[in-house]
Design a protein around this nucleic acid. Structure first.
Lengths: 207, 207
DNA sequence: TCCGCTCTTGACCAGACGATCAAGAATTAA
DNA sequence: TTAATTCTTGATCGTCTGGTCAAGAGCGGA
């Protein structure tokens, strides 16, 4: 008789601690980068001992990859929601607004990715070339269609998407610089949203 | 008679080695970040022994600060050149073109700064709040003036500058992502320049 | 209650890394 | 040539850090 392969059913404690770890890991990795973060820091932050943490994730890199994967999906949700059936300017405006609010509300995730890509994207390179490229190509085709219908000013859709990513995530990734130059007035993010939507709307509206 | 304070006159060897070190340090720090880089790596890359390198810069942090300061000035040159007497759209177009070419030709400097700011800008925080803020405020005032004269669409000048920084440096800082999504076709940077200038020109042209 | 499994931890290890030092080699100025 | 100064390096130190291990504590099902 053949042994049934053991199903790795998750304990309550297991699920709970893994969640704690991923949360702490996001904080630490986003602040110090992969190399700059230490396992001890993460363990301390979630109230576990270092060996205990390494009981759940065997290697530091495993934690890193897990937290990356854990946040990647959410991060692309707004782009996924770009609706081919919607009004072009309105769709893109909504995308920009959603992205900049995501940057404001979850800057740590933004910084985690920024750091990962800045240092070569070794851990998520395959994801970028696979699912991400597929998604972007799909949405770029939609934008290209809108342009062909004369509903948008003709801009290369890939570079348009890059521009939206760059401008919105800038406020999370370069926060110290933004703050140093613009002050930490409470309306900085409101002004940013306003300026960016205006820039892109005017830049995209067909003449 | 009063001793003349010893003037730290620089030897030929000294100047030569310091240049070697700064060049190697830019490579290594931009690729791995401050924490990720090792003194040994830098020493090896410029053909010096580790103790010899530490003869010129006592601490790792001294090298880091030196290479940051060494490149900071050049990096802001394009903004400094924004001419209040010029034609607004033309001036800003030229600024964008210069910046994107700088990103293309010196991506390592871009990544060095990105990494520094991403991790809190502890080494150049004072510079950001001082000279950088002063320069940006000065140029923002110029742009505001152009807007008041009706020569530009009304956009918050600080956020406009942020948008230009973000979009242009994106191509250096997020190169692996750009390459994964857009391919490494030789015309990527040409298309980027074209798309960005068009976006900003249309976004800024008064209606 | 008992037993097997999961969970937790103090102690420890090996390697990496920043930094020091003493001593010798090279260079420079006279 | 000589002497002072600058430059170079092998050896070494102390610390930090990722990861291991063995042993014990806690938990849940029968």
């Amino acid at each position: 008789m053949v042994e049934a392969t053991t199903i790795p059913r998750k304990t309550r404690i297991q699920a709970q601690n893994e969640e704690l770890i991923l949360k702490a890991a996001l904080e630490v990795f986003s602040a110090y980068g992969f190399r700059g973060a230490t396992v001890d820091q993460i363990a301390t932050r979630c109230g576990l001992s270092k060996p205990n943490l390494l009981y759940y994730f065997r290697r530091k890199e495993d934690i890193y990859v897990a937290v990356l994967e854990h946040t990647l999906h959410d991060w692309l949700e707004p782009l996924r929601n770009l609706d081919p059936g919607g009004e072009p300017i309105e769709e893109i405006t909504r995308y920009i607004r959603t992205k900049i609010r995501l940057s404001r509300d979850n800057p740590k995730a933004s910084r985690l990715f920024a750091n990962e890509i800045l240092h070569g994207a070794t851990a998520i390179g395959a994801y970028l070339k696979g699912p991400l490229k597929a998604l972007v190509d799909e949405k770029a085709a939609i934008i290209r269609g809108w342009t062909a219908e004369g509903r948008l000013n003709a801009l290369d859709p890939h570079h348009l998407i890059f521009a939206i990513w760059a401008t919105t995530q800038h406020y999370a990734d370069f926060e110290p610089q933004v703050q140093a130059v613009a002050g930490h007035a409470p309306d900085v993010m409101r002004r940013a949203e306003e300026t960016l939507t205006k820039l892109f709307v005017e830049g995209l509206r067909p003449r």
